[in-house]
Design a protein around this nucleic acid. Structure first.
Lengths: 206, 206
DNA sequence: TAATGTGAATCGTTTCACAGCG
DNA sequence: CGCTGTGAAACGATTCACATTA
């Protein structure tokens, strides 16, 4: 398989979500120009991204939303669902746990973990919850490949290590600390404060 | 002022947070190699970023953490605090509202907004809460420049418009929809599901 | 010696411009 | 004719390699 560059993958992922919404609204056809308006990516870049997937099935009057979405998901390997867990069930973790937006996303939340037995027993959850010391075991048992880390900074590295030991290969990290793990683990950081500071700096630079 | 490229700003923002943590731990000196270990950015890129700030004060035995942090914050315009608000006080918004990590960040949470009067009256909050229809007015009154959007997708565009009308110039958007606003407004999207899908795609491409 | 700072080269992405095709 | 797909050009960022400095 040809390697798709990361920025392209990021855009295609957004495009796929956009197309999914379009399809839900009954919009059957779209074009690179239309998608530019909706996503902010330039039409040119969009065409490049799509064509890089290797002849994305299209006709000459634009793209058919549903079909294009299918092609993107196939090429990005998003067709096969991946199991995911949430580590750290404070307010942030809890809010993601009860979030309804995972339907049809290819991401399946399978379990939650927290170091507090209290939390595990009291929290209402659509999926089973386990104590943190069982992370490695349960992750392996349930075939979980992805994790969302919403623990305090001090606990992040240890939790991450347990996850990786259990076979997790991708982590979405909210804890404000850069996880230094093996290069075979994909980590993406969502630091809310840092993001705000980036916006602030962008504003300062006009 | 020389324009600092966006990727560089993103890294510098992370570096600044890292340095702040180092300073708190009492580590007074560091180096590009040390920062590489801590952040994952290459030492070379780190030096380039720092030197691009225009002769960042250093001596030949590395950087002094505190001083380097000060230089970065100054150059990124992070010294003057910016006022921020949170729109949408569901679980996600609420968790950010009660998050303690904004201290010394240069980001000051000034207000919260929600369309439900119930939420506004019942939620315990360290800052005043207002109904959504007062967004434009209050934002202007309080001199708020930044906003965190944690409303449902349907409400996102309307909320964003109200914010911009009140003078907000930067938005951190959690609602899974691409906000198309004027080009003078900086928008950064944090789509949790999309991020997981990106990780999934990166894993699929080995 | 051990570190930064920086021109030069490399690498990768985005944009341009147009051929091709229904 | 409108829109995609794509080679080529332009741009921007990262890495390299080394001069420099205490």
């Amino acid at each position: 398989m040809k390697q798709i560059p990361t920025p392209s993958i990021e855009r295609l992922s957004v495009l796929s979500s956009t197309l999914s919404r379009l399809a839900a609204e009954g919009v059957e056809k779209t074009s690179s120009a239309d998608l530019e308006k909706r996503t902010g990516f330039s039409a040119c870049t969009i065409r490049k991204d799509i064509s890089a997937l290797g002849g994305a099935g299209t006709d000459t009057a634009g793209y058919r939303s549903k079909q294009l979405q299918a092609v993107i998901e196939k090429e990005l390997g998003l067709e096969t669902p991946r199991n995911c867990c949430i580590v750290g069930l404070g307010r942030m973790g809890g809010s993601i746990l009860s979030y309804g937006g995972f339907a049809d996303s290819g991401i399946v939340i399978k379990a939650g973990f927290d170091s507090s037995i209290n939390v595990i027993e009291l929290l209402r959850s659509p999926v089973p919850l386990y104590p943190a010391y069982e992370i490695t075991e349960k992750v392996r048992e349930l075939g979980i490949e992805l994790a969302i880390l919403t623990v305090p900074a001090e606990a992040a590295l240890k939790s991450a290590q347990r996850l990786v030991d259990g076979g997790v290969r991708g982590i979405l990290n909210f804890a404000p600390i850069n996880l230094v793990l093996g290069s075979d683990v994909v980590v993406r950081n969502l630091f809310v404060v840092d993001e705000l500071r980036v916006i602030s700096a962008l504003l300062a630079g006009r």
